[in-house]
Every structure is written in structure tokens, then in C-alpha cells.
Amino acid sequence: MNPNPVTVRQVSARLARSYGFVAGAFWAIMIVLLVVVETLVLVFADDPSSVWQGFRWAPQYFLLFMGVMLVTTYLPIQVAHGITRSIAIRAGSLIAVVISVAFAVVLELGFLAERGLYNALGLVQFPDSIDLVASPERILLSITEFSVLYLAYFVGGWAIAAGFYRFGGWIGTLMIAPAAAPALLAEMSQWNGAILGEAHGHGQAWLAAAVVTALVALLWIYTRALVRTAPISAK
């Protein structure tokens, strides 16, 4: 018998297995779709450009959904198995950061793989927009930008679900706006950052990433406050 209480490490490992499996399935579908669409574009388009660029939107909505699941699916079951909300929050936060960075890295690896293909075919990957794999520095900036963007979506989903869980429909709906704010700002800064990045260097993009990170931290504090005392109602 092991009478010791559950640890953050145990809960994180279980979440990682569960989310890892779903995330693996997600990326497998993404890659299959990429191969199909990329092939069609390269064969039929007059001026082909990065297809992966168009796929970059999908992960953020997937991560929003994962954030929602932390409250709607996992929290009641975790508490029912003797796990405190505090441990569940810490494990969820760790997973949010790891999975956001991992998704950003996979996305960037996709751009790099596509770059190899376009170079081999003598095509330009990003004819009209910023080159996301132009240099090691740009790759690092892109990974950071996408990590922050994805984290904003993940924590946004978590906060939205916590709002509905605690306050119900009306207030929960009202709380969507502040919960979505960091993600929207991250989107805007990424677009602006791309333009500014070309014109004035990358400083503006790093600053935007820092601001969004600070807002995500505030959103996390709000989410933690809601989840920390959340009653676990019967289904």
C-alpha cells in the first residue's frame, strides 16, 4: 500500500499521456491533409506557395478545446479520485506550456520540411508574406510567437470553461471576451509583428510576445481563482 497523496508529477504524466494521444492523432490528420492538399497545389496551382501556412490556424482551435476539457472533462474526475484542485491546476498549467511549445515546434518543423520541398522544386515558399524560416533567429522568434499564441488559446479555453462552470450561461458568456483577449491580441500582434519585423527588425515581435505572455499570466490567475474553489456538481 502506498498511502501517499497524489503528486503534480503523477497528474501531469497522466494528462500528458491522455493529451499526447489526442495530439498525436490531430497531427497525423494534419499531415495527411497537408500531403494531399500540397500535392494538389503543386500539381494544379499556377503560383504555388506555402500550404502549411494555411494549416497554422487549426492547432490553436484544437488547443482551445484542450483547455476547455481541463475543466469540463478532467476536473470532476480528478477531484473524485482524491486529487486536489490545486494539484490539478499545477499539472494543467505544466501541460499547457509544454503542449503549446511542442505544437509551435511541430508547426515550425512543418515549415522547414515544406521549405526543403519548395527549394528542391525551385519554388518560393513565402512569396507574399514574411519568411518564417528565413534564419535561425527568425525560427526562434516564430516558435516563441506561436508558443505564446497557442498558450493564449489553451489558457483562454480553460478560462472560458471555468467561467461557464462557475457562473453558468449568462456570466459565462460575458466572460468569453476577457478570456479571449490575450489570444486575439496574440493574433493581431503576429500579423503586425510580421510587417514590423520586415520593416524594423524583430524587436516589436518580441515585445508583443512578452505583452501577450503577461496577459496570459493574468488570465491564468483568474482561471486559478475560479477553479481553486470550484464545486464539483453531479452530472
Partner: peptide, 20 residues
């Protein structure tokens, strides 16, 4: 409440079920 040393010793089973 929020005491891991205690909650790990308690098991409440509800009719609604708290499983995936």
C-alpha cells in the same frame, strides 16, 4: 477541502459516476 493528505484517503462514489 484542498487537503491532499486527506482527500487521498476519501472516496465518494456518486450515482452519476465520476469517470471518463
Amino acid at each position: 477541502f484542498e487537503n491532499a493528505a486527506v482527500t487521498s484517503q476519501i472516496c465518494l462514489i456518486r450515482e452519476s459516476g465520476d469517470v471518463f
